[in-house]
Simulated scan of single mutants.
Amino acid sequence: MRRRSLLLAVPAGLLTLAGCGDDKSDKVKPGASPSDAGSAPAATVNIVSGPLPDITAGTKFGEKPTVAKGPGEPSSDLAVKTLIAGKGAVVAKGDFLQANYLGQIWSTAKVFDNSYDRGAPAIFPIGVGQVIPGWDKALVGKKVGDRVELAIPPALGYGAQGNAQAGIKGTDTLVFVVDVVNTFGGKSSAQGKAVAQGNAALPKVGTNTDGQAPSIDVPKAAAPAKLVSEYVIEGTGAEVKAADNLLVQYKGVLWDGGKEFDSTYSRGQLANFSLQQVIKGWQDGLAGKKVGSRVLLVVPPAQGYGDKAQSGIPANSTLVFTVDILAVM
């Protein structure tokens, strides 16, 4: 998988400049791991409950908030307060956190970034050094449905250098309101309605949604000559576009013999990639499918790796995948 900078996937206002993947690769495969994460500061972080500025409008979960200026001097510690308590899954270190947020400067209330106006939450790894340390320290352990307010001192934000692109000085304390929309980890699965699999000439895929790898039973028959893309579980999300970046669980086996050659379940790590950077069978087979779905793909050699052998994949192989489309990034 091409290691691409997460700056392309997450608004610049939240990212550290370190820990971004390089952009060098050979031919991209579906299924490689996300970029290696960086590290947050090892020093102990004190978390306090305030002071924090008032939310003066947009007080409900999912509403764009209006936040007052900071009241007096901010704490030198990380201030964290849960404004609305959710009841969903707990955010774990290394998860891909899906969140709406607004960020502004303590002393001026100047908003430097927000996802609400973009009309879609951001998704990024949490707790592993891919966002500013204040986020990593504050949001691991929160629940889906939480609205959290943060006041992040410079040392846990952008440090003494600040972030000139966002208009943040090295002395600025940052205030965020964060709505935790969802969290995705190694046990995440498609969520939707199972679709009948009545074609005996096609592989049958398990419909379990417990985070375990679904079974793939390949028939003892000739492989189809054309690409197959069928729902196993049909989700209710938006349709995937050709230019989207996806977050997925998947498993791949060979048509001949059914041997597994790649799996996010085996690695315990989700895959994220641009649909334009994977094999043709994935590009054609996943575009138009709904987020939240599990999709069976049977990829003939011409839309896979052709006559070029890959690790665990002989030349001229027909490939069978089950792909859970968890989110568009």
Rank of each mutant, 00 (worst) to 15 (best):
R4Y: 14
S5L: 08
V10M: 07
G13Y: 00
L17P: 04
L17E: 05
G21I: 02
D22F: 15
D26M: 13
K29W: 13
A32V: 07
D36M: 13
D36E: 15
D36P: 15
A37N: 14
A40S: 15
V48N: 02
S49I: 12
P51A: 01
P53Y: 08
D54P: 13
T56Y: 10
G62V: 02
K64N: 13
V67D: 00
K69G: 05
P71W: 06
P71S: 07
G72Y: 08
S76D: 15
D77S: 09
A89I: 05
A92I: 03
K93S: 12
A99N: 07
A99M: 13
V111Q: 10
G127Q: 04
V128P: 09
Q130W: 14
D136P: 07
A138C: 01
I152A: 06
A155M: 08
G157L: 01
Y158E: 03
Q161N: 08
A164Q: 14
I168T: 00
T171V: 13
V178H: 03
V178A: 05
V181C: 06
N182I: 07
S189T: 11
V195I: 12
A196T: 15
G198H: 09
G198V: 12
L202N: 09
N208C: 10
T209P: 03
D210I: 02
D210S: 11
Q212Y: 06
P219L: 01
A221C: 05
A221R: 08
K226Y: 02
K226F: 07
L227Y: 00
S229P: 07
E230Y: 12
E230R: 15
Y231C: 00
V232A: 04
E234Q: 12
V240T: 07
K241P: 09
A243T: 14
A243M: 12
D244T: 00
G258F: 01
K259F: 11
K259I: 08
Y265R: 00
S266E: 01
S266N: 04
G268A: 04
A271K: 00
Q276Y: 14
Q276N: 15
Q276G: 15
Q276S: 15
K280L: 10
G285Q: 12
G285A: 14
V291A: 01
R294F: 05
L297C: 05
V298D: 01
V298Q: 06
Q303V: 06
Y305T: 07
D307P: 11
S311Y: 11
I313P: 01
A315E: 02
T322H: 10
D324W: 00
A327D: 15
A327R: 11
